[in-house]
């Protein structure tokens, strides 16, 4: 134990569905050093204070998207949030907002995974190319159109930030929408028409009231609010112009 070690109070939201009727808060005294993240703080709790504490984590360097938690009420990756920034005050750690809790800090992400599947998050080739024809080429401009949206790591912080998803979990939501947009604006992709059905549907973009908090909390600087709102315009254009520009078999 080094000399610059201090002790911080970490207040953790606990919930064990088989035992507890409702979630409750539990406070732990955690010794920490300047280089310790909130994730390391809860790992300390699990290793030395209470082995029953459950939470998800993996990479510890903000790329796997597993360790999202509400830290003092803000959706954050606990691996890149540091205890020193809260000391000497107590830091409050809770499961991501707007999701059902499976246990302690572990949320049930089934709804999100279904949404992710529904947007068909892969390139549906515009034209099939054989190996002999070689790779699909893209200009830097074509890459720019979608590159930032491809940085999403599915951490769901934007869902915990979105008040509209909180009010209505049917809403397709910021993260899935950003990824949908990523494929729709990819020059190699031909699946836009299929995906637009979802964009323009009742679960689609129009639940968004342009709050923008989703983009603020994104740890990878994706701008999901931008994707959602660009697609409001796309969906509206499609709504009014669909009779003028028939799509489908006869092109």
């Amino acid at each position: 134990m080094s000399e610059n070690q201090r002790t911080i109070e970490i207040e953790v939201l606990r919930y064990h569905p088989e035992k507890d009727k409702v979630p409750y808060q539990q406070v732990f005294q955690v010794p920490f050093t300047d280089d310790m993240s909130v994730l390391q703080g809860v790992q300390y709790i699990k290793d030395y204070l209470d082995g029953s504490l459950s939470f998800r984590w993996s990479c510890r360097m903000a790329i796997c998207g597993s360790c999202g938690m509400m830290i003092n009420g803000e959706p954050s990756l606990s691996c890149e949030t540091f205890l020193r920034d809260y000391y000497p005050a107590r830091v409050r750690v809770e499961a991501l907002a707007h999701f059902p809790i499976e246990r302690d800090l572990v949320i049930n992400m089934e709804g999100f995974i279904e949404k992710l599947e529904s947007i068909q998050p892969y390139i549906i080739p515009k034209e099939k190319r054989t190996l002999e024809q070689g790779e699909y080429l893209q200009t830097p401009e074509q890459l720019n159109a979608y590159e930032q949206f491809s940085s999403c790591i599915n951490c769901m912080l934007c869902y915990a930030a979105c008040p509209q998803f909180g009010l209505n979990p049917e809403f397709i939501g910021p993260g899935a929408m950003a990824l949908l947009h990523r494929y729709n604006v990819d020059s190699r992709d031909g699946g836009k028409a299929e995906r637009m059905e979802l964009v323009a549907s009742e679960e689609g973009v129009f639940h968004c009231t342009a709050v923008g908090y989703c983009s603020e909390v994104c740890p990878k600087h994706v701008d999901p609010a931008n994707a959602v709102n660009q697609n409001k315009t796309n969906a509206a254009a499609d709504y009014f112009l669909r009779f003028l520009a028939p799509k489908g078999g006869a092109k």
Binding site: E197, A200, S201, E202, G204, F206, K232, A235, A236, Y239
Partner: peptide, 10 residues
């Protein structure tokens, strides 16, 4: 999926 009529109001 049901198409939303929100574009009119939006």
């Amino acid at each position: 999926l049901k198409r939303s009529n929100a574009p009119i109001f939006w």
